[in-house]
């Protein structure tokens, strides 16, 4: 007869590996990378063609102001829904601190803090700093080093962009598309990185 204290199961003694396996099953790293990579690409697209059309209607500034607060909430809700679906299909929960909580925190911060501070303007003048802050918060929340590294890279690029914006000198009206090209390249890099990580996570599953 089996007794709980004397089993011969090949349970893995390496607890770090076990945690890594659970995270792979949760798509803990790849899902935020893919979600926010797609959002950055969408921002780049809006910043060029569609954004130019909005400008004629005077809506471009409103779009720039509201894009990242709304996109952050949309991204987190998408992550929350996909984590719930994974729980139902695969039987693994989304972790002690899930995306639902993160979404509520972002909404609360926006509702409580935004009317009192010019926080929204971070999304206008340093949009990548906003993305980096959200990814860094997720990385810290979920103790994810890979996500943290991406947040750092995006943060450095976002800070460099903000410095260039306030630096004296003018690129000229003919170069208006350059930041959008940069966002597009960064978003695509994040998506490709997310796909590579997702493949690794799936291999860990098998």
């Amino acid at each position: 007869m089996e007794t709980p204290g004397a089993d011969s199961s090949p349970a893995m003694p390496d607890l770090d590996r076990l945690r890594a396996r659970v995270r792979a099953d949760q798509r803990s790293t790849s899902a935020p990378m893919l979600a926010f990579g797609v959002l950055i690409v969408a921002y780049a697209v809006l910043g060029t063609g569609y954004g130019a059309r909005l400008d004629t209607a005077g809506g471009r500034h409103l779009m720039l102001l509201l894009f990242w607060p709304l996109a952050t909430i949309a991204g987190l809700v998408a992550l929350w829904l996909s984590a719930r679906r994974r729980a139902v299909r695969g039987g693994v929960g989304e972790g002690r601190l899930g995306y639902g909580g993160a979404t509520l925190v972002v909404i609360l911060v926006l509702v409580l803090v935004v009317p009192l501070t010019p926080l929204l303007f971070v999304g206008v003048f340093a949009p990548m700093a906003w993305v980096a802050a959200v990814l860094a918060a997720l990385a810290w929340w979920r103790r994810d080093r890979v996500l943290g590294a991406w947040a750092a890279v995006i943060g450095v690029l976002g800070a460099a962009e903000a410095v260039l914006l306030v630096a004296p000198g003018d690129l000229g009206a003919g170069w208006w598309w350059l930041p959008s090209l940069g966002y597009g390249a960064l978003g695509l890099a994040l998506v490709v990185g997310g796909i590579v990580v997702a493949r690794r996570e799936r291999r860990a599953d098998a």
Binding site: P10, V22, V92
Partner: peptide, 26 residues
């Protein structure tokens, strides 16, 4: 096995019976 179970549940928050069986080969 109980240490491994608690580790998995600490990371996942919750998990169903088949997932725990598969992950820990029990």
């Amino acid at each position: 096995t109980r240490l491994a179970l608690l580790t998995v549940l600490d990371e996942a928050g919750r998990a169903d019976f088949p997932y725990l069986k598969k992950t820990l080969a029990l």
